[in-house]
Design a protein around this nucleic acid. Structure first.
Lengths: 324, 324
DNA sequence: ATCCAAACTGCACGTTTGTGCAAAGAGCTT
DNA sequence: AAGCTCTTTGCACAAACGTGCAGTTTGGAT
């Protein structure tokens, strides 16, 4: 009896989280066993019935966070990670916390712009469900390249976002970069494309990682067959430090005159900056240069990143966690 | 070292609630004992660092809630209570859940209007701390009567609200009812009073219970020496069913021509209805008539009440909880 | 009616968590 | 520095909790 299961879960959650009853007491009230209550509560958490939020008081927070906040004017969430973890495990932790931080921000009628990449893929795997209405998830930039149409990879990410929030998913079935700027210009006149662009223009939340040219192991974009040697040479000559949604920028946040952007399918930086809430997720200290550029460009309103990267960002390279 | 304690609590909360680590693992990372982590997490919950919210999807919720919602156009939170509890214990449960439901709604820069009475007193005892800035708590109506100035009783309530949210408290040092309407009119011209009235006019949240003329054991207002025999007779002749913040109304929600209101210090119903968020807390089925009137008058946007009262409200007198 | 797969339940066990208590530490006064 | 109080810590134990497993129910399909 699903009908009653859902309402039992709600009752259980209220009694457990809002009245501090034990599962035992709840079981008696619900005339079932304690283990069932335990499972009801798990279900309640997983389906987003219970929302747990950590709010760090802006001013009393750790030094590290306030420094970043002051310097770049973003809301920072530094993810504490065990020091022993390797890069992949760190990404996983950051993604998990990012997913849970994003959850409470997504609300009915939101238009959620989502980029793709290894960071976003990890985040998408950890999203917790939350029932919303008339929410739309729209892809920020195309994912096709010379080898694949990119559909499966990017669309897995999109699909996971969509099903977590019960949202309609709008894919962007174009390559990441057109070979010719003229083709892009032509496509941008198509009504099917304009529908997507229009959604993007009305986004209320954008979620993206950053690519960094000098990352230890470079992002998909720089390695995955999206750009040819000519392109890479051009990037090198334009002082590009990184990208957001396959749109490139320099260390000082500028992007004017980077010709590759004319063939990129991602939203112009100026357009991205119009979005009310722009959440940037970063894991791995080697992305530092791309990240600096993105922050200088004012691309993010919220930044979620691991502790080591946060320390490098403010120049505390080898400083220990701020306790003791 | 308080400084580091706070930030340890934040780190612990993130690792526990957002990354699902065990307290043991967190203790190792923080180089302390597991019991300390347990205490850090308690502190994090109590200081409002961790916010737990239960959202019941409006449409998929239990029948009871949607019926009330449709009929009276309010957001309902039905508090499940053990069937074995007596009236005092029920009030305590409702108050606890109300306090926790209110918490997440209070934000920086809010102006919080608070009434007084046994319900509000119970709620105030269960508030969890939450750090906010420039929040003001303002008393909705005077509390003095023939026997006392009411200062201690009402001001305890106000003080608890104030300290829970780190807010400035503005008391309203007048009697609940003036003996003469003319005195009220005169006082309302005083700048000291106008300062309070001005705050009330700018409230963003109002919190109140309801008084009901026919309650099993009548509210303070009807018993506590606030009204003399003449007043009570007058009330009986005006078909009054209850009050909110010592302002009376009839079953159909009207309040015109109730002369006592001209001597009352509570906000006019029409003014109360201007407040964006108006939270009504009710415990005890005997308040049903007062509650019906208040809802019909459109005084509340949010209603928190116990299950038994909720069932009576929609006429399901003896119906069992909606499960099985 | 009978069968089957899938979902649900309660038990039992091991794990995780809360808390009284004694010891250690921090902050102040003399 | 010694002495004092008030707070914080870790230990040890009891309480509360999560989960694999086997038995049971449910809702079709035949």
């Amino acid at each position: 009896m699903t009908r009653s299961r859902h309402s039992d879960a709600l009752r259980a959650a209220q009694m457990y989280y809002l009245q501090d009853l034990t599962m035992d007491a709840i079981a008696r009230e619900l005339r079932t066993s304690r283990s069932t209550v335990s499972r009801l509560l798990s279900a309640a958490r997983e389906t987003g019935l219970v929302q747990i939020q950590i709010r760090n008081p802006l001013d009393t927070g750790p030094e590290l966070e306030s420094m970043i906040r002051r310097e770049y004017n973003v809301d920072v969430h530094v993810v504490p990670v065990l020091e022993s973890l390797n890069e992949a495990e760190t990404l996983d932790r950051v993604a998990l916390q990012a997913a849970r931080t994003i959850g409470p921000l997504v609300d009915s009628n939101a238009i959620l712009g989502v980029a793709w990449g290894s960071t976003l893929s990890a985040v998408s795997r950890h999203l917790t469900r939350k029932i919303t209405h008339d929410t739309v998830v729209v892809q920020l930039n195309g994912a096709g390249n010379m080898h694949t149409t990119g559909i499966t990879y990017a669309s897995d990410i999109m699909r996971r976002f969509g099903s977590a929030y019960g949202a309609r998913v709008e894919q962007f079935p174009v390559p990441a970069f057109f070979d010719h700027a003229a083709t892009k210009a032509a496509m941008w006149q198509e009504r099917s494309v304009q529908r997507i662009l229009d959604l993007q223009a009305r986004m209320s939340i954008a979620i993206f990682g950053v690519g960094s040219v000098e990352a230890d192991y470079p992002s998909h974009v720089y390695a995955g067959g999206y750009l040819d040697e000519n392109d890479l040479r051009m990037l090198a000559h334009s002082d590009v430090v990184g990208d957001v949604a396959t749109v490139f920028f320099r260390r000082d946040g500028s992007s004017d005159g980077i010709v590759l952007n004319e063939r990129s399918t991602g939203p112009a930086l100026s357009q991205l900056r119009q979005v009310r809430r722009r959440i940037c997720v970063v894991s791995g200290a080697s992305k530092i240069n791309g990240l600096r550029g993105a922050l200088t460009a004012g691309l993010a309103t919220d930044l979620i990143l691991d502790e080591a990267t946060a320390r490098r960002l403010v120049g505390f390279e080898g400083v220990a966690p701020a306790n003791g």
